[in-house]
Design a protein around this nucleic acid. Structure first.
Lengths: 246, 246
DNA sequence: TATAAGGTTAATTTTTGGTTAATTTTTTGA
DNA sequence: TCAAAAAATTAACCAAAAATTAACCTTATA
């Protein structure tokens, strides 16, 4: 009897351990109905979700916890969603948190602006909650968190160890220069997200150093050369910049 | 009485059954929300976790059980987290239990102080629960490796005895200065990990002393000279720092 | 207080790789 | 289908980083 209970206990524990970890999602939207609806659907899908009607309260929340993903309405009453996005991206702490934008208009220009500001995806209103949840999952899947372990993989043949500054392709180590490594790091920590050449340069050298942005092309070339077959994951988005796509 | 015996039995069985995973983690944090969140995530990851809002209760708990890892908020209402850390490290009983510090500010000085006091890692608020869990796993993983002898070997010709402050190359002892030894220790306890010159300097002298980082180059040179053939394991990563690579 | 040991600095040489600019190829839209 | 724009490629140049060397402090100790 006791034995059985012990067994069960163990089995249950194991199952828990294998289940996906709770993912915290923050939603900022000034329309209570929509906020409520989104929250319900996210929670039904097993996410931990927190909603905010004002940017103000959202910022308060941010001081205590960093969510795994942020859903942001472009149109907020107190602040502009784009400004929030810009702010988040400028802070080291939050810069790696993926953002999904909710936009009222499906204008192509908005999309571009969103991409340039660092959003990882955008959903146009009106939207179906199911679609939003699907997008959330897609972005998270792409992301494949690096945190803590300091290791990430791209297309399961390329592994990047941030502590060791080591890159391996199918267990063969590849020598990268510091700059090449940093670019790869930037792109791979936000898979799918497009980075402009200026953004990459800022990441590399900060604002002080002024360098022609064509330089990035050359670094990308070197990277691609060294990565060989795995270079297929580094993609150019014409007119905008570069990204990693698995 | 019977209850006690059953309990004992269960505990023993459980430990046997899931040797790597039945890890007990204690968290001390005065903010109920954060405590709750962390507990949820740790448990979902398969850890046994106990939370404490006050240092007082945590100490009571310590009299009964020694956790495998402690997560400690630097800012506690009744006691200073640093004092708790100092106390734990001073007691033979608890000195080998790894500690992860939660700090409100990302002040560099705090970090160093924490590390000097024996904390194994630190996470700055706000943090993502996932990151914390990943750090916990990383610290535990590291712990396992170091446990036991206190002797490390590099590329099976270089042995380092941390207790005796002794370095041998193929059974011939090598005389190192304290500084050289410390650098070798730092690099060899986290093989492969690249340390910047600043990190090495912080490890050597803390933050008070201000020294030009070129100094490290000279120490490395001396080290390499003394290590002879084994110096091949000390590698420079241009633009980043030094590491040991086997 | 003289001495030795070890840490630091500074100056010089060597090596590496980041930047530029010129050229070719590719993409896109009129 | 053609012209313009953007990206890829290539090689030369040069500046930054590391290695090396020697001289100079600092501190502990006899």
């Amino acid at each position: 009897m006791i034995a059985t209970r012990i067994r069960k206990g163990i089995i249950k524990k194991t199952e828990e351990a294998q289940s996906p970890m709770a993912t915290l999602i923050a939603i900022v939207d000034d329309e209570p109905d929509i906020l409520e609806l989104v929250l319900i659907h996210l929670k039904k899908s097993g996410f931990l979700a927190e909603g905010f009607l004002e940017a103000e309260k959202f910022f308060k929340f941010l001081e205590k916890r960093i969510p795994d993903l942020i859903i942001l309405d472009l149109m907020l009453p107190d602040t502009d969603g784009l400004d929030v996005c810009k702010f988040l991206k400028s802070k080291e702490k939050y810069s790696s948190v993926p953002i999904i934008m909710l936009t009222a208009k499906a204008e192509e220009t908005d999309k571009i602006i969103g991409l340039e500001l660092g959003a990882d995806d955008y959903v146009t209103k009106p939207f179906s909650p199911k679609e939003l949840v699907a997008r959330v999952k897609a972005v998270l899947r792409r992301q494949k968190k690096v945190e803590g372990t300091g290791i990430t993989t791209v297309g399961n043949q390329l592994t990047i160890d941030f502590e060791k500054y080591e890159v391996r392709i199918k267990d063969k180590t590849v020598d990268l220069t510091a700059t090449e490594f940093k670019i790869l790091k930037l792109l791979s920590t936000r898979k799918g997200r497009v980075f402009s050449r200026d953004e990459i340069l800022d990441f590399l050298w900060g604002h002080e150093k002024v360098v022609i942005d064509r330089t990035i092309d050359v670094h990308i070339r070197h990277l691609r050369e060294k990565l060989g077959s795995a270079s297929m994951f580094i993609k150019n988005v014409r007119g905008i910049g570069y990204k990693i796509d698995e």
